[in-house]
Design a protein around this nucleic acid. Sequence first.
DNA 1: AGCGATTGTAGTTGATCATAACAATCCCCG
DNA 2: CGGGGATTGTTATGATCAACTACAATCGCT
Lengths: 136, 136
Amino acid sequence: MNDPLTAFPGYSLRRAAHASSSELANRLAAIGLRQSDASVLMLIGANPSATASALGRHLAIQRANMVPLLKRLEDAGLIERAPIDGKSQGLALTEAGQDRLAQARQTIESFEEELFLRIPAEHREHLLPALEAIWR
Amino acid sequence: MNDPLTAFPGYSLRRAAHASSSELANRLAAIGLRQSDASVLMLIGANPSATASALGRHLAIQRANMVPLLKRLEDAGLIERAPIDGKSQGLALTEAGQDRLAQARQTIESFEEELFLRIPAEHREHLLPALEAIWR
DNA sequence: AGCGATTGTAGTTGATCATAACAATCCCCG
DNA sequence: CGGGGATTGTTATGATCAACTACAATCGCT
């Protein structure tokens, strides 16, 4: 079939992101996490007592959309909130959260490594800088 | 903020795809199209009398999800269907569809060019092959 | 003639994102 | 110190995209 789309980097970008994203989502589902859950766990793990707003800003997740996400993690006993002042709350991992994060990290790291290795060697080192130029 | 995610190609891939995708969606919305609409128009334009199933296979859109998409395009008077045999139908652009496709093509091509130019020169030629290695 | 595969369709579900609105609180400047 | 603009968490709602199941009709091949 004649295909005018695959020559476009933007189109290929979407297809590649979708493919890799759904693969990772599958693997994370095996430990009961979504990608956004895992991202938030990773970020809280690296930044204890960060606020929901700050995490959202950094992950490009709207404040409003953080609410059900954090509620899910809290209901699952993975995170807990501690008031910082009257309006902000610091987020931290519970012990269960740290365990789950370890699993998530393992899942993500091996996934990312496989992904990286699928790229022909001569292009590998160019991918990340090229992508960052697009969204940073 | 300490960020363990941006070093991952997969994460950066999702962020870049989301950024570029929503930008393109905005521009296409100005001519009344979604990205999937535009993709389908492009593909029909390059492959007259292709079937819905064939398009879907090529674009990685499930047969079932092509239905509302094609209905939208047909209701907008952009495509028409001609029975090939008892169960297949060939899709073709109407005149309005060809006009709209021309606009879409213009929009997409200038978008893709801008996108391409945002990538530092030394990485540009590596992006497409790297992406294709991921999803092809 | 018949059986497996394909096609189009309908309906439902879930995930992700965007947006608007609101009350409570914070922070800074006059 | 007081007040106004900004920030925070939250509720609610809608749009988009994508996955799944199921079904009837038809095709293609043996």
